[in-house]
Design a protein around this nucleic acid. Sequence first.
DNA 1: AACATAGTTCCATATAATGGAATTAACTCA
DNA 2: TGAGTTAATTCCATTATATGGAACTATGTT
Lengths: 273, 273
Amino acid sequence: MSKPQRVATDRVKRSGGSQDTGTLGKAISVLDIIANSSEALRFTDVLKLSDQPRGTLHRQISNLIDEGLIAVNRDNCYTLGLRLLQFASKAWAGNEFRNVAAPHIQKLHEATGETVHLGVLRDIEVIYLDKIESRQNIRMVSQIGNTAPAFCTGVGKAALSALPDEELHERVERIEFRPYTPNTLADAAALLSEISTIRSTGNAYDREEHELGITCVAAPIFSRTDALFTASVSVTGPAYRVTPEMLASWTEITRDTASAIMQSMAIQLSPRS
Amino acid sequence: MSKPQRVATDRVKRSGGSQDTGTLGKAISVLDIIANSSEALRFTDVLKLSDQPRGTLHRQISNLIDEGLIAVNRDNCYTLGLRLLQFASKAWAGNEFRNVAAPHIQKLHEATGETVHLGVLRDIEVIYLDKIESRQNIRMVSQIGNTAPAFCTGVGKAALSALPDEELHERVERIEFRPYTPNTLADAAALLSEISTIRSTGNAYDREEHELGITCVAAPIFSRTDALFTASVSVTGPAYRVTPEMLASWTEITRDTASAIMQSMAIQLSPRS
DNA sequence: AACATAGTTCCATATAATGGAATTAACTCA
DNA sequence: TGAGTTAATTCCATTATATGGAACTATGTT
């Protein structure tokens, strides 16, 4: 007897994007177009990128502007609205997982002296939820909320490894294996093989696979009660300073940090049942 | 013949909130309810706070979940989704005004040694767009995107002072003069009188009006071509260290910083009315 | 186990979104 | 400056989508 999934968990799968349905979905698609463009877009530019008719798109944009999700500058170019900052500020401050994880990643940072990341898997991307670095480079805001492909980052691969097989394969099929560096994994087979290693060792590495000169070791964080939530912690550093030996020496502490976070989450959530 | 305002600038006025119309508006209202609640809300809680019927609200929430704007935890409580972080990260990084202002507020920070804010007025609230503090308190992310009432903060009052009179009065009428501290301005008359001072001197003060122990001096940033955009910079510090004399000594440099930012934005100074 | 409360689904109806085309505004260049 | 061109905005009959009351299912409580 298969009990029907609750709507909530049932639909989160598809990453936001182009094929969105419903009025809200279309509006967010437009927002996405504006967010993901490197160029500043005017109305006609968005028109070309979206497949909406003129009138429709125009009203959608008007609505987004009304809500403060989009702003227009003097050249009639669209930018993301400050309302998004407002929401995000609260999303971040109120995020239970981040709050729970904060002291642990702080400890990890102190122990290693290198940059520490907390990442959450969203479909086949990783969203960086938190970051601690020594030489606080002032402008970290833009880093938090940043996304990176899951398949070529330590946080990403660690998080992927925590997925149930079926889910994992479904997602891996949709990955486009863009070769960011010479070390980037080339295809699904390579990725799956590495994930199998990660599952047995409990650690994922990034050996300059996303960006040359950047290496890291990561460990997965997952919840068995809610299998769709997977995340991870990592210690990252420049390859010239952080040797493979150093990375290897941090495997245990990253795993311990991940475990500690899972424990804290479990405690945090248990008073219910 | 009155030329019709373009939709863009015409509708930005109302702050997001309860009276929103259209499908998107209603969805964002729901998001707002969840964002602004101190408690974790379950479905029925949101139902009470919104004036939507059960079925409708349920679908709206489902859609928001689909788009990643809302997440549900195991207790069926709603939280803001990480998708918002993703958008906000780009909104912040790509914000032209912030980018232009960044070097100037950095200089202001170096000159004063105290915390510097860059705030943008949104209706009767201020959104903090950037912040530089000495002892980088690591977790500044939640600060950026934060909002504060305009009437009791330096940044807020400075920005208000740059509004055209008509607009100013319209907004001031809607302010609820909640007494955050004994020093908080009590009513519209007091605020308008102070704004008149700000207009002639070019500086706004916050004398522990929002939070006891916090003082600041601010200067407005505005654009004549787009009167609805007003912002400001401020230097803030703890009252025990930052004396009124020190604040007074920073009036000129805050004004200069504001001017420099306006210049960089290629904005012409408007004559004061 | 029975009750109570919370969450989800259904479907005829009303309402809001649609989109093609016309209108107006904003550039461009002679 | 003004004709020519491109971009932005508005209009409105049609259609698709959101609506919302009520029935239903699941969850938690005494």
